[in-house]
């Protein structure tokens, strides 16, 4: 028999609101065994709330050259709050607070009247 088992990439989430994080890769004959191996191989000491295993052959990675596509100029403040910082001063003229990220994310459906 040529070769060994297949390569599976292992991803996990620390808690229910955390993003999936790549852990490492392992060899297993199929998804089921890969899943049974994953936690104890890479997360023996930390909390985990979810695990994904993905066959590496199903992943389209970037080549060294294609990573060039990831570069961009630093002239796009119109898509970030950085480009709208002057609003703080403006709102002050109307005796209003600026709704910044901290303020908006604090609402959580619990706006007090």
């Amino acid at each position: 028999m040529s070769g060994f088992y297949e390569v599976f990439e292992v991803f996990s989430r620390k808690n229910d609101t955390a993003p999936l994080q790549h852990q490492f890769s392992l060899l297993a004959p199929n998804h089921e065994i890969a899943l049974v191996m994953a936690q104890e191989n890479f997360m023996r000491r930390e909390p985990v709330s979810d695990i994904w295993v993905v066959k590496r052959s199903d992943i389209r990675q970037m080549t060294e050259e294609e990573k060039g596509a990831l570069k961009r100029l630093d002239n796009k403040d119109y898509r970030t709050t950085k480009g709208y910082g002057y609003l703080k001063k403006k709102w002050r003229q109307y005796e209003q607070e600026m709704f910044d990220e901290k303020e908006i994310l604090s609402w959580k459906g619990e706006i007090q009247r």
Binding site: M1, F4, Y5, P29, N30
Partner: peptide, 11 residues
């Protein structure tokens, strides 16, 4: 290893 190599998941 031989029994499971190239196998489809059967669970």
């Amino acid at each position: 290893r031989e029994a499971l190599s190239g196998s489809k998941a059967t669970v």
